[in-house]
Write a protein that binds this DNA or RNA. Structure first.
Length: 206
DNA sequence: GCCAGGATCGTCT
DNA sequence: GACGATCCTGGCG
């Protein structure tokens, strides 16, 4: 994994990030869902042109773009395409692999009424862009940080994922350009934020 | 199980 | 002063 990986079409990067492992400090997970945003796209923060908020999007690839959504959630993106081309990949869901108890501690207070154990199940930890940043401890302070250096660590897709099926569909939670099929998911993963496609292909052997 | 509503704040008009 | 690339909860069936 290197900077060249990100200096390509944001759609290729979004697709190829599925199956890669993202670590932040002692926590890590396999990326199972992403979305692509580019500057020709009304839903992209860079669409309106360069501002103080979206400046990171116009910079070099391989950098974290973190912003606050709904005043509550930090959302994590990877800046893609060569410098000057503003595009990013939103990381929407992870399959947790390391630091799971730490993730539970960070997210556990939201589990009050789930059941008597008040304990989040594995696929409740990172199954959404706001959830995974909370589980990994990613906040606005990491906006502009290098994704290829601590506390981040991004690893190539495990060979077991090389023939994994990646499915695409409409992006989630946006009002502008909602019809563009720029969401990328690991087919059949139970860790995605929402099932896609509606009739999921048969589960691949684990 | 589904849906409506509230939380909460940085950014831009 | 309005608006989100969201998440959780409570009410109802």
């Amino acid at each position: 994994m290197n900077r060249e990986f990100f200096a390509r079409s944001v759609h290729e990067v979004a697709r190829d990030m599925v199956g890669c492992t993202l670590a932040v400090g002692a926590t890590a997970g396999i990326i199972v869902e992403t979305e692509a945003y580019d500057a020709t796209d009304p839903a992209c923060h860079a669409y309106i042109g360069r501002t103080a908020r979206n400046e990171v999007l116009f910079g070099p690839p391989g950098i974290a773009y973190v912003y606050l959504s709904y005043g509550i959630h930090s959302l994590l993106n990877a800046v893609a395409e060569p410098e000057g081309s503003a595009a990013a990949v939103l990381i929407r869901a992870l399959e947790p692999t390391e630091g799971i108890e730490l993730m539970r501690e960070r997210r556990g207070h939201k589990a009050r009424t789930l059941d008597s154990s008040t304990r989040l199940t594995l696929n409740q930890l990172c199954s959404g862009p706001g959830k995974l940043t909370e589980a990994l401890g990613v906040g606005l302070d990491l906006n502009g940080a290098e994704l290829l250096a601590p506390p981040f660590e991004l690893s190539d897709r495990d060979p077991a994922w090389d023939d994994a099926e990646i499915v695409t569909g409409p992006r989630i939670g946006i009002t502008k350009a909602a019809e563009l099929p720029w969401r990328y998911c690991a087919a059949g993963s139970r860790f995605v934020s929402r099932p896609w496609p509606a009739a999921a292909p048969a589960e691949r052997a684990a």
